[in-house]
Design a protein around this nucleic acid. Structure first.
Lengths: 169, 169
DNA sequence: GTAAAATAGTTGGTAAATATAACTATTATC
DNA sequence: GATAATAGTTATATTTACCAACTATTTTAC
């Protein structure tokens, strides 16, 4: 019983969530031999932005900064990164991959790339470009969406929610 | 400092995860007045498949069945659904929306649709079709990916992972 | 017809993710 | 110099994810 018809009816948010679950499931299977079992996207990001601060990772990967503290703590514990105070702005802590972190992150990057090229292998270049363009557009749209304005028909509580930093994804 | 360049470099799995986070953040803000604060995708699915069994929801939304038990327990507690044993196959439990569940699920469906149409509003019909087609292709590809074959360069542990049901998303 | 396998669901435990509020330290702004 | 803003931390509570082991029921194979 194939359920492509069921799938098509889902919201794009739900389809994206399903895709990410399937993706990370495959990814983690392919990386079982590493010394971390998760945080792959963070290490992937660090590979491109080695030495950035924690807030930067949070903004680019849509991760809460209080969660990031524990993630970095863990990555320090397993010897993947160091946390260095920026002498020019002592509020900032630079996150730097160690030699071990760099080595294993290279494996992570390879796996990410291998999965991407595998699952896109039968998609035309044009369709890939369109897909990526729309994906980016949707995220941009969502970031600027003032939910309380759009959904005028729902009564709002007085609750405040988190703000969005300027360099967020 | 816009980070579209950073975003573009991420894997499709990570981009999808970010999209889903942004999406559900907007969604939950728009539905703060309801008697549930999550499980929206499950209620959305039930709206189309009222009376299906738990496994069916799991397969279509890529949710673990042990997690589903607790979700359904909660939805029963807040009066959104009933859990009825199928007399023809007493292993199966049908999940049926109550009158209250139907009413509030209608609001959820409205919100899902409102967000989708809002964020797709500036995307051409052709691009929408391409996007959805590729999204579906990627999920299908991921489901059939035998990670151990793809990543021949990684040593495998003896661990077994979960199997994939035939009607999974 | 019965044993074995498969399926649907449940339980319990562990670890991790998520969210929030309150907090320190530091720097920027007025 | 007071105030606000920023980067990060701590603490807490809830939810989720994952897995192994389990019951109950139905299907399959011999």
């Amino acid at each position: 019983m194939p359920t492509n018809a069921n799938y098509a009816k889902l919201s794009v948010g739900t389809k994206a969530l399903i895709l990410s679950k399937l993706y990370y499931s495959v990814l983690s299977k392919s990386l079982e031999n590493l010394d971390v079992e998760r945080y792959y996207s963070i290490l992937f990001f660090l590979n491109e932005h080695n030495g950035c601060n924690q807030q930067n990772i949070c903004n680019n990967l849509a991760i809460d900064k209080t969660a990031m503290v524990k993630v970095i703590d863990h990555l320090i514990k397993v010897g993947f990164v160091d946390r260095n105070v920026n002498p020019d702005d002592r509020r900032e802590h630079f996150i730097v991959l160690t030699k071990k972190g760099l080595k294993q992150t290279a494996e992570i990057v390879k796996s990410f790339n291998a999965i991407d090229s595998e699952i896109f292998s039968e998609v035309s270049k044009e369709d890939q470009d369109t897909f990526n363009k729309v994906l980016c557009q949707l995220s941009s749209k969502l970031k600027e969406l003032p939910a309380t304005d759009l959904f005028f028909n729902y009564k709002k509580t007085g609750r405040k929610k988190k703000t969005v930093a300027s360099d967020k994804v």
